[in-house]
Amino acid sequence: MPSPSKDYFEFFGLQRRLVVDAEVLQRRFYELSRQWHPDRFGRRPVEEQNEALEATSVLNDGYRTLRDPMKRAMYVLAQEGFPIGEQRSKNVPPELLEEVFELNMMLEEIRSGDESQRHELESAGKHFLEMRAEIDGHLEGLFQRYDAAAPESESAKQALQEIRNALNKRRYIENLVRDVDRALNAELKPEQREL
């Protein structure tokens, strides 16, 4: 048996696309899970047993990554040289920072109020959810644009750049959604927030 690829798309026998058919992915996951199941390697040489173990780990990580559209996009971004985790401010559009800052200020003001602010907090939360839905719609379109572009082409790179910007914004909005939820449920006191 050939050594399994560490590239998730190759491992699953899928084309490198940002839009993935969830059913196909799940079917491949089950097939590969059977194929690499450790029980089948019980009587095989140690090297093959180790290979099966490694394949199972790539399989699980890969499935977790590829089935989530956002994680999948981040995976492709990192592979194509646009890692999401290693950006400095120069990679973030200044208008986005301004906007996020203002939204945070608004949220803080509402949150520092009393129970009468609850309604405002709820509508802020709704607003953030709408913003997230809008970003998701935008990302949908960008994913298709990337998939339609020739690999490594300028338009593919352009799409990836825009995807990264949209994912950055999404991350910020995610945090706002979470903060509103926490404030509404008052589950966490500020000092319990992760330092």
């Binding site: 950006q87 986005l96 301004e98 996020v100 950055n168 910020y172």
Partner: peptide, 13 residues
């Protein structure tokens, strides 16, 4: 100066 770290969602002025 307005800067941010999207990976953790921080924004700093």
């Amino acid at each position: 100066g307005m800067v941010g770290a999207p990976e953790c969602g921080d924004v700093m002025k």
